[in-house]
Write a protein that binds this DNA or RNA. Sequence first.
DNA 1: AACGGAAATGACTTCGAATGCAAAGACCAA
DNA 2: TTGGTCTTTGCATTCGAAGTCATTTCCGTT
Lengths: 334, 334
Amino acid sequence: MSEKAGVTSYDVARRAGVSQSAVSRAFRKGASVAPATRARIVEAAMALGYEPNAIAQGLITKRSNLVAIIISNLTNLYYPEVLAELTQRLSLHGVRVLLFSLAAESDVEEVLGQVWRYRVDGAIVAARLSTEQLVAFSNRGVPLVLYNRVGEGVPVASVCCDSDLGERALVDGLVQAGHTCFGIIGGPADSYVGEERANAAINRLAHHGIKAEFVRGQFDYESGGAGLKTLMELTDSKLDALICVNDLMAIGAMDTARNIIGKRVPSELSITGFDGVSPATWEAYQLTTIRQPVRRMTQAAVAMLLERIESPDISPEQRLFAGELLSGRSARLL
Amino acid sequence: MSEKAGVTSYDVARRAGVSQSAVSRAFRKGASVAPATRARIVEAAMALGYEPNAIAQGLITKRSNLVAIIISNLTNLYYPEVLAELTQRLSLHGVRVLLFSLAAESDVEEVLGQVWRYRVDGAIVAARLSTEQLVAFSNRGVPLVLYNRVGEGVPVASVCCDSDLGERALVDGLVQAGHTCFGIIGGPADSYVGEERANAAINRLAHHGIKAEFVRGQFDYESGGAGLKTLMELTDSKLDALICVNDLMAIGAMDTARNIIGKRVPSELSITGFDGVSPATWEAYQLTTIRQPVRRMTQAAVAMLLERIESPDISPEQRLFAGELLSGRSARLL
DNA sequence: AACGGAAATGACTTCGAATGCAAAGACCAA
DNA sequence: TTGGTCTTTGCATTCGAAGTCATTTCCGTT
């Protein structure tokens, strides 16, 4: 078994005394090969350390068995879990992952060029795509599933965690528990989930006749503390309910509230997050948040994508998953 | 610009009134094409939305421009950062990432089969490889760089963060600050870094004539708390210095110490970690730890790999980076 | 006008596996 | 033995771009 580079089906064929076609057939199930022949071929292949060249297979079959995964910022703490899940699930189906991680959202265009070049069978995207970019996918016939985003102006298959339901649960709980002065820390203006969640919270508060102060953050730890400080100023320190559109900012805010500002959480200030990342459940935080059902969502995304790879004409579908309210100890909820 | 699937160089050639060869040349720098011709070709290519088929290129040139990245558990909190860095750096060099994330270490063998099939130009691996597996890389002529691991029995290019230096700094600091009862929480027995760091700590303590209690964890938050409890029992609650081989366990231990056991950190119990993940710097923890120089390490890994892809015969090299001591507030150090 | 050398271009082959098609065997029945 | 059916097998072609080599074109010289 002296595995060497560049062993081809011809090498195997020669050693087994058959034609190259036979070798090819021996490796695809359902092909017409005599059992004895197949055995000889497999033996020869093992002896030579032969592995079919996926590149050549891809060229002839027009199936690369590659799926592109495009994620804007992997350091988000939430995405690694998603990525790991997606990768492993796709693996089970014999599909390989071509990973594109963006330093800046604006890199998408360049990345797409590479996606086309590699003739991927499909793509799962957790980054903002313009309408033209969405159209490009459909023109090129590359099945696409958006993760936690929906197509703007164009119907596209997508998997999302319901922002409205989630924020509604949080807002309602906070309102009913008697909070009166609300603040919201949103995401950057160009983030889809950020806007969705912030708007969901704002709308639900409006439904209760409450107007909240609003500031933007960058989804990171520091933004939480900074946002909280700003909101305290804006509200003359009357703030008693802080809604953050992700957990990381909520955690940052908690730390700042306790250690810098000196507000008790949750007795003086309730703080909520969104995502359900693992630090949210740590003893020190016990964050009240909405946990995204990552396993079900990734499972759905993979299933939808594979379906569309098999049958390219399946119509777009949006799957909205309800998050689970995680009642921690960072907020007084009713 | 009605980009469609399956535009080939022949299509472009026809539209530009040239041969396929000309199109090919127009897209590679340094080739002999008249400026005017190239212009016509580029225009035609744009009009058709042509992108060279990387699969076909890979087949003929025997360069896939793909690099495999194999990471055992992405949920480790430390690896996402590494992965993002690696991906982006490789991108800059026109190299694409084929990601393999392992659910269990034992999946490596199966994954390697796929690595061979895709004829990757090289691989960066942060997972345990057996000697046979290491040899397989060299037999197949696939350049390999190990990340935070070294080849066992076989010389292999690798990039590591120095465990000895790091643990020595921590141990010396703790000893000099007067700690007397030491406990160590290691990693699973099959983890390379886990064993390295634990041994480094044990050895350095021995050098000071101190013997520490030792328990194993799984690198996760829960293991920290559980490990601490066990160590408290083993030491009749006399434990006053806890060395964890990664930050996550240290964080878990801190939370348990403060909130469950009721020990003050660091006045009654000093806790140290390793890695320098972002939560370690959070207000609530301010962990005393060794920060791995991720940027320099990934930078080195990429550089080493690319070098070896260009010149396959470069001899193996180990690059050991010293970590930076992050003096937080979780340990009394001198 | 004729020639030489360089630049530009195209025809053809190549990479490695898959597959349509035809030929060759295998097997059974009459 | 012959014919017919079904299974195996090999030949030849294909996928799309790169690159070799031969040819053509272009330009400057004399």
